[in-house]
Design a binder for these strands. Structure first.
Lengths: 337, 337
DNA sequence: GTGAAAGCGCTAACAA
DNA sequence: TTGTTAGCGCTTTCAC
């Protein structure tokens, strides 16, 4: 194999090049490649060979121009560096690849503005959008969903299909767990003020506390970053003997602070996180946490979105995925007051 | 504001709709929106207003069909769930957004085949490709780079622009650090056999060991997953008093195993990781690790790629980013043998 | 400064 | 079974 002229030529092969080489019309090439049944087997083979020789790749742009469809789905997450979204991203990507779709990942940097702007842009570039932990308000979300297929994750707005991780239930489990260990004064260390999940978890705890005989305290709002954990930890020490924390990342920061202050976990203060993020079993002590099937959430979101796009909508518009408490060592017995 | 008819109409507005509403030709709309200087200010305003009213978004597909350019860059990573890539993804995304590009993120699942296939697909869908820790061999990589703009991260192939994190130097720093602590028998716990960085780190260590009077052992290859850490840890105990590990994730797994076995870190066995991944300062004990400016690597890779695409190539074809040892507590003094 | 028309690569009628 | 033709939405000559 000496020179390969086609490889050297800068311009990628078009359907016209393939047609010329195979001695057929472009429409035949198109058919051979997308509706193999409707073309003579011999010519089909000739065409496939020609395409291979020119290493022809169909232009997705041209295709979508005529089909009006892009076979691309956008996934918007508030913070790509938050390990919580890893599983979601991966689950979505797997399901998308299987369906022959590409994934456009966008980090909206916790900004409602960037989010809205991106969704609008995507109206032409993607067939649909998956919104993780959207920062938009209900009205906006509902309006946008009118215009283009949208599925939300961890955000429930009437009329917008959604995948919900039932973390309020997980929080309830955590509360019972701590209570059964003997804790009576328990704090909820809350996440961002505009977080929908956060509000729902608090509600669930508030509802469950009385009948358990738990004195419930509230701390926050806190940003879901490890750095915020220091201040958060300080608010809890002395107030409660156990805490349920918005998410693991925040809990990591608390753990670090408590170690600095010499407050022992779980002996002096119990901690329960949420998400079962990467690292939750490596930290000191390993973190008891509300684990959620986040990768599955990604897959389900894609499935629902593709149903919406395809109009195959079985009508399922809301999926609630169960969570469970993964008890490790950061929630020991209640300290004797 | 009662009914908003345009919002209700399913079909998104095209340039033609805008032209009609503004009472001009489509070409004028096009100019007004992309070359504002070449159009009368009054008409421009009329057009902008019309576009806003119809909430017109230009079709990127149609644009790229005529321009031959997609303003999209593909980023291929072997494993999206590996926290090492977070920073890279984010750095790349920031720089891309600033330049008005979209990011197509693909998880190649550590498969050379998926990688090659994806790169080929991207020839038409993206203006360029960033390859993190490519699994392809030199020949393939060089050939692909002929056909489309490619920048590699942590992979150096002649003729392919690359961003290199100088982890071999970091490994050398780790070796000196451990030696100065009194360690003489030190193991390198290696990563995947086909990892280019892995090979280079070993070379660096091998070269540095004699003059430091270090007896260097080698363990591996291991997959860079926490689960692999258990077996890896077992190979080191008793052989060496300190170990330099391919990456933090593997080190996490080792830490867990050593805790189970009752081997104290760093008293009985010192550990130095690599990457300074999320969690390295939360684990027990906090992990001393070779830290690399990974987010910067993402930004630099994008810059280099865009230069290649734009033909603005200043000719810079290789960026080497320094690394440094971030000493925490997992590398204590040498145990007395 | 603006409009008419051609064409980017592809698919989908419609004919043959 | 295959070829011809007309567009998808946009940019870009080329006239005016």
């Amino acid at each position: 194999m000496a020179e390969e002229p086609d490889a050297a030529s800068r311009r990628p092969a078009t359907i016209g090049d393939v047609a010329r080489l195979a001695g057929v019309a472009t429409s035949t090439v198109s058919r051979a490649l997308s509706t193999p049944g409707r073309v003579n087997e011999a010519t089909r083979q000739r065409i496939v060979a020609a395409a291979a020789e020119l290493s022809y790749v169909p232009s997705t742009q041209a295709r979508s121009l005529v089909s009006g469809t892009t076979r691309t789905v956008a996934l918007l997450v508030p913070d790509i560096a938050n390990p919580f979204y890893f599983g979601l991203i991966r689950g979505a990507q797997r399901q998308l690849r299987a369906a022959g779709y590409a994934q456009l990942l966008v980090d909206t940097e916790e900004s409602a503005e960037i989010e809205a702007e991106t969704i609008d842009l995507m109206r032409k570039s993607a067939d649909g959008v998956i919104l993780a932990a959207s920062r938009l308000d209900e009205r906006q979300l509902a309006a946008l969903a009118q215009r283009q297929p949208i599925v939300t994750v961890n955000r429930d707005v009437p009329g917008v299909p959604s995948v919900i991780l039932d973390t309020p239930d997980g929080a309830r489990q955590a509360l019972m767990h701590l209570r059964s260990l003997g804790h009576r004064r328990i704090a909820y260390v809350g996440g961002p003020a505009d977080s929908w999940s956060n509000a729902r978890r608090w509600q669930a705890l508030e509802a469950a506390a009385p009948e358990l005989g738990v004195e419930l305290h509230r701390s926050g709002p806190w940003m879901p970053h490890a750095d915020a954990g220091a201040a958060a930890a300080d608010t809890v020490v002395g107030t409660a003997t156990a805490s349920i924390v918005f998410n693991d990342v925040l809990a990591f920061g608390m753990l670090r602070r408590l170690r600095e202050r010499g407050v022992r976990v779980p002996e002096d203060l119990s901690i329960v996180g949420c998400d079962d993020v990467f690292g939750a079993d490596f930290c000191e002590p390993p973190l008891t946490t509300v684990a959620a099937p986040i990768e599955e959430a990604g897959r389900v979101a894609v499935t629902m979105l593709l149903e919406t796009i395809g109009g195959t909508g079985s009508g399922r518009t809301r999926a609630v995925l169960p969570t469970y408490l993964r008890a490790r060592r950061s929630s020991g017995p209640a300290p004797t007051d």
